[in-house]
Design a binder for these strands. Structure first.
Lengths: 168, 168
DNA sequence: AGGAGATAGTTTAGGCTTCAAGTTTTCAAG
DNA sequence: CTTGAAAACTTGAAGCCTAAACTATCTCCT
């Protein structure tokens, strides 16, 4: 009945890959789950606001910074490269959603901030986005949500630890 | 002490967004967790094998199909567009990892399959990939892994259900 | 001051991805 | 047959993303 006993017997003979397959299964499931939700959100952003997830994330960063942010700071917060920020900023500025402003103390730098139009537009998108997520995750019980939140946090910390140990 | 009571009192006045913020938090945490792992795997694929995650996924699909697959079938399994498959296949063929073969019964179609070199190369990559995942997720206890697997499955089913209901 | 090295930002080349339009082939009626 | 719709695949344009090279500015040490 249980193929597990066979697999266990088999892998136990090798030199350690005990839970390796389980970890792989876990990772693939997490990935497919995240991609499923992400793809749906991208679809809806495009369909209803003619925008993209990176643009939305970009505006979200600026929304929380009343004084604006430099490209470098946005790059760090979004965990993308500087060149990427340059391109996104160019398109968002072109659309009138953000504006550039020179920094007095440092002539290399510039701050990006939302225009009034950008602020209005992001408010609309953000409200819809929040509802979409609630709709998609609505099937989960409060207990499951809490448990999942805790486990994901634990996972993330574990991954970071593993990365700073061996991955340097 | 607990801002929660304040938030609850506040949102309870609105017309329903009870757990909306919680759902958003849950989604953002899941996304950051998945992106963290994925980014690390991409980095390592590039650093050690000079390849990318889409290429790796592509080879993985072919590995499991002894008779090869058509671009259309790969497109469906990887959940990407046909044009995307065309481009990936062109580069992988160029590198000698896959080969094209005409389909006897349908002259529109073609099957893609691993070359011997592709099979060898994927075996190397796949073994490393499995170890990386185990390393990154290794911090989790067996109990946590099992719980997480179950919760993610539940989440995915819930999302699919929500998508087929309202999202049509 | 002057110059080495760090930092902020941009540019460039190339890969990934989608959408929309196009080609060739198949299939199903008529 | 033949004609029209559907299917398999490719192409082209545009956006996203990275790594690496480049420009301009700043900082700090002497």
């Amino acid at each position: 009945m249980t193929p597990d006993t066979h697999v266990d017997a088999e892998t136990a003979l090798d030199h350690a890959p005990a839970g390796h397959k389980d970890d792989l299964r876990l990772w693939l499931r997490m990935l497919s789950c995240a991609r499923l939700i992400e793809a749906e959100i991208r679809r809806r952003l495009r369909a209803r606001f003619d925008t993209t997830l990176p643009r939305f994330d970009f505006l979200a960063q600026l929304e929380r910074a009343a004084e604006g942010l430099t490209p470098g700071e946005i790059s760090r917060r979004m965990m993308v490269t500087g060149g990427n920020v340059t391109g996104l900023a160019a398109r968002l500025e072109e659309e009138g959603l953000i504006e550039r402003r020179a920094v007095r103390e440092d002539r290399r730098a510039v701050t990006l901030r939302l225009t009034p139009q950008g602020r209005r537009e992001f408010a609309r998108q953000s409200a819809a986005h929040e509802e979409w997520v609630a709709e998609l995750l609505g099937g989960l019980s409060a207990t499951d949500r809490a448990a999942l939140l805790r486990l994901l946090d634990r996972t993330r910390r574990g991954v970071r630890a593993a990365m700073s140990e061996g991955g340097a």
